[in-house]
Design a protein around this nucleic acid. Structure first.
Length: 779
DNA sequence: ATGGAGACCTTTTTT
DNA sequence: AGGTCTCCAT
């Protein structure tokens, strides 16, 4: 067999079609677990074996991880040398490279800095302050969102300011000045020689729109274009692809409309739904065979997604075994939910000889992880939370990187403001403010005022001025070292001479931070030693022989990196993450937790059909992560923002046909540790009551009517029996003659000294001395 | 200038 | 509950 035949022999018929159709527009609808990555990588490998130049191939992904994995797999198929020259990466990283080459046309210079969400947020805050607006009305997050959505839809700041709908919407929301903020925001970015993430896409569009030679160049260069996760593209991405592909029309998009879960970030599902309209001659190939999950899981997931109106027809099926039915596990509280999960993990581990690493616990929101984490610790179950704070977002890392950035780009004001007095060097807030105002008055960059204070009559005292000059000189000394000192040596030099490390050494509690800095330096070391990933001239494809691993190159590669999330599969740990984070991954045993109304679906996403359908797709994604088994859990009570909330089970649970479930959903009386004999509970009587109005401020489900008047002995007897001290345990539902219904949160002490903290539905938390408080256990 | 106490605000988030 | 931000007291 030749290489080509060998590649094809490893694919099913439909996959082969998707791989072989390399000319013309192709859309591959890849159901969950249908071998999407396989098709993409084999397609590229196939093109290479057919003699297509790797320089002509552009493969776009959403995550660095996806790009990395694909690269690795292609290397394995066709060898390093050929595959390396394929332009494969995230939208942002590929366009960032092009913008660095072409940026002078946009008024940017080579040392372009990319501002991350933290940078832009702090910039917005500072603009709001500068404009003397109320930061409680002009909330940074909100403004950030408005600007980001605008840019993703290719609205310039003028478009934004002039669009009547936008003006009206902003006026109605009491924030008529967002357009002005937007304008200043862009001015600041430009003056800082910086772009935000959205700009990388926005300006790429500008280049292709306004410079026909640029359009022509990249159309000629990228004759074969592949796009992963096409359902997640926003308008800016969509249009770039469309323009680049216009000349040769060799465009292959791969995606699954059923797994579109990022519309809140501007992803536009209509891009995939309208592909046929954009490319009437396109071939549509559906990968419908699922290789991942059992029949039960596939069928249940199909049944769920059928409830969505916006979708492309497809019939996902599998040859795999029927498999276990799905378990639904109802518990009294978030803590009980966690214990039930721990029990189930233990049981499955024993019964099916599974290892911890085969389990994943998924949730809608990160905040749900804590209760689970606490219990897993108690039960000595090793776990790893994939979440939240990226390494690069840690304060000490950002601080040090700010020095790096400033050394490369003196106009990077966010970095300048961050480190001008860190570590403390006697340039306090007042002085910085003076510097800022002075720069603003003269329409000058902060850096220029800093280095020439007298030219601008900067009003600070002589010692402060000297400290400022010192600081600038220090940064300049770093800049001078850039061309000759490699990234690691310079980074190390900066870490030490800037005083960051010594400042951290002073406080023993900062030991972790020092370790993080060491870790960063290690990774920079690895960068300097690594063979350059793309030492090609982006335009000509020429090999660049004079590549030097400098700190500015390091910043270029790292500025678009999320977390390295060493997905150490070797570690035998249960994995915990949000469902969003789980997309694209698979596990043998999957717990989907918190299946409660207002949590999943989220209370913020049930107002429109589109929102609800996205939540449903999210549920679909969650289910289809599992190879062998799915366990769905929900709790009747849960702490939310510190207070106890009652919950109904999620409507999604009702959408799973009974035949795929292990137990009847109302009374989980089956065997196995998931099921608990159902005790008379609050939820049983109330969980099917009328849904609460999502618009009403009281999100919590209807609680029993507050008892204003105290009741007689006889009436109390109707409610339940007087509790003994022993019966008062955590999560127990109780009734108090004055405070009404509540749930025990914690207890303390024993016998006559025993106290209980009770969360009452109407009057909040009370600590009660049990020998005085006559608590009743409701029937 | 700096730190501690209170007020405030909470989704998901590939880049 | 917990993290972040602001403001006031030192």
């Amino acid at each position: 067999m030749n290489q080509e035949e060998e590649l094809l022999s490893q694919l099913n018929d439909v996959q082969q079609r998707a791989v072989k159709q390399i000319e013309g527009p192709v859309m591959v609808i890849a159901g969950a677990g249908s071998g999407k990555t396989r098709v993409l990588t084999y397609r590229i490998a196939y093109m290479l074996t057919r003699g297509i130049s790797p320089f002509q191939i552009l493969a776009l992904t959403f995550t660095n991880k996806a790009a990395g994995e694909m690269k690795e797999r292609i290397f394995k198929l066709v060898g390093n040398s050929n595959a390396k020259a394929v332009s494969m990466g995230t939208f942002h990283s590929i366009f960032y490279r092009i913008i660095r080459v072409e940026g002078s046309r946009l008024g940017y210079n080579q040392n372009l800095t990319v501002y991350d969400a933290d940078d832009t947020k702090s910039m917005i805050k500072s603009i709001v302050k500068e404009m003397q607006l109320d930061p409680k009305i002009y909330v940074a997050n909100y403004i950030q969102n408005r600007i980001s959505s605008a840019k993703s839809s290719l609205f310039s700041e003028e478009d934004y300011a002039q669009n009547p709908e936008i003006r009206e919407a902003d006026a109605r929301s009491g924030k008529p000045l967002i357009a002005d903020i937007f304008m200043r925001y862009n001015q600041r970015l430009k003056s800082a020689n910086a772009m935000d993430f959205d700009d990388l896409l926005y300006y790429m569009n500008v280049l292709l729109r306004d410079y026909p030679d640029v359009l022509y160049k990249y159309q000629q260069r990228y004759r074969y274009i592949l796009v992963d996760e096409y359902q997640d593209t926003n308008y800016a991405q969509y249009l770039i692809i469309k323009k680049l592909a216009a000349a040769y029309q060799n465009i292959c998009v791969v995606g699954d409309d059923a797994q579109s879960i990022y519309s809140f970030r501007g992803a536009d599902i209509t891009n995939i739904l309208n592909f046929k309209r954009d490319y009437p001659t396109c071939e549509i190939i559906k990968l419908e065979q699922n290789y991942r999950s059992t029949q039960n899981i596939v069928n249940a997931a199909n049944a769920i997604i059928k409830n969505n109106k916006d979708q492309m027809y497809k019939e996902i099926w599998t040859d795999n075994a029927e498999g276990s039915k799905i378990n639904i596990l109802k518990t009294g509280s978030d803590t009980e939910e966690a214990f039930a999960i721990a029990d189930a993990i233990f049981e499955i581990k024993v019964n099916e000889q599974a290892s911890h690493s085969q389990f994943a616990i998924l949730y809608r929101t990160n905040s749900q992880s804590r209760a689970i984490e606490e219990v897993l610790i108690k039960r000595h179950i090793p776990y790893k939370i994939y979440a939240g704070l990226s390494f690069y977002k840690r304060k000490e890392i950002k601080d040090l990187m700010a020095y790096f950035r400033l050394a490369v780009n003196h106009y990077d004001e966010e970095s300048l403001r961050r480190v001008i007095n860190y570590p403390q060097r006697g340039i306090g807030a007042t002085s910085v403010d003076k510097l800022l105002n002075c720069a603003a008055e003269h329409h000058e960059r902060m850096w220029n005022v800093l280095t020439h204070p007298d030219d601008f009559n900067l009003d600070v005292n002589a010692p402060t001025k000297a400290r400022m000059t010192d600081f600038a000189a220090r940064i300049q000394s770093y800049t001078a070292l850039l061309p000759t000192t490699d990234a690691f040596d310079l980074a190390k030099h900066i870490a030490e001479s800037s005083g960051i490390v010594s400042a951290l050494r002073e406080d023993p509690s900062d030991k972790d931070r020092i370790e993080n800095i060491e870790e960063l330096l290690d990774s920079i070391k690895a960068f300097t030693e690594r063979e350059p990933e793309s030492a090609f001239n982006e335009v000509t494809g020429e090999l660049i022989s004079t590549y030097f691993p400098s700190l500015d190159h390091y910043l270029e590669t790292v500025s678009l990196l999320g977390d390295d999330d060493e997905k150490d599969d070797t570690e035998d740990k249960v994995k915990m993450m949000t469902i969003h984070a789980a997309k694209g991954l698979e596990f043998d045993y999957v717990f989907v937790t918190g299946l409660e109304e207002n949590l999943f679906p989220s209370s913020l996403c049930v107002n429109t059909r589109k929102e609800l359908e996205e939540e449903r797709r999210l549920f679909y994604v969650a289910l289809t992560r599992a190879r062998k088994r799915v366990m769905l859990t929900y709790a009747e009570t849960r702490y939310k923002f510190g207070s106890l909330q009652f919950a109904e089970h999620s409507r999604f649970l009702d959408e799973i046909p009974e035949k795929y479930l292990n137990t009847t959903r109302k009374a989980s009386a089956g065997k196995g540790s998931f099921s608990k004999p159902e005790k008379p509970s609050f939820a049983k009587t109330h969980s099917f009551s009328v849904r609460t109005n999502p618009f009403s401020p009281a999100v919590r489900p209807a609680a029993p009517k507050p008892t204003v008047q105290t009741k007689t002995e006889a009436e109390l007897a109707q409610i339940g029996e007087l509790a003994t001290f022993d019966q008062i345990v955590v999560n127990k539902r109780v009734y108090h003659n004055k405070f009404g219904y509540g749930v025990v949160i914690s207890t303390e002490g024993f016998g006559d000294e025993k106290k209980a903290l009770v969360a009452f539905d109407t009057v909040g938390n009370k600590t009660l001395m049990l020998k005085f408080a006559k608590l009743i256990i409701p029937k």
